[in-house]
Amino acid sequence: MKPLQLVSIFLGGLLFGFGLAFSGMTQPEIVLSFLQLRDLGLLLVLGMATGITLITYQLVKKSIKKPLVSKSFSPYPSIIRKDAIIGAVIFGIGWGISGLCPGSALASIGIGNMPILIGIGGMFLGAYVQGAYFSKKTS
């Protein structure tokens, strides 16, 4: 991958991480307060982020033929897969227990939240067990 592409991804990630911290989503306590329906803020965060992304995806694909520093847009698979739902159930249980989801847990390192490394270690282990023992050969 070209340096310019990596710089683009780094800067996009930087904005993403800044926004996660700004919104408080890097604090598991605030995420849990949403999951226990004491503060609906997470829905505002997800809604704003999705809304802006949706507009960008539409505008960008209509106005330019290729991304500014790459050759083509990556496709998005739209087939319905049973695994997407089974995985979502397991993810939901883990999210409800801990208040952690991947992006906010990784960004949480940046706010100095060192216990989060236990959660990230768990995520690596979970991803390993999934890939090594519960993946299908095809797809």
């Binding site: 995985g87 991947p102 768990g122 282990l125 979970g126």
Partner: peptide, 13 residues
């Protein structure tokens, strides 16, 4: 525990 399930579930999904 939560992290493990999140890692497994998000990758399965």
């Amino acid at each position: 525990l939560g992290g493990f399930l999140v890692g497994f579930g998000t990758r399965f999904s």
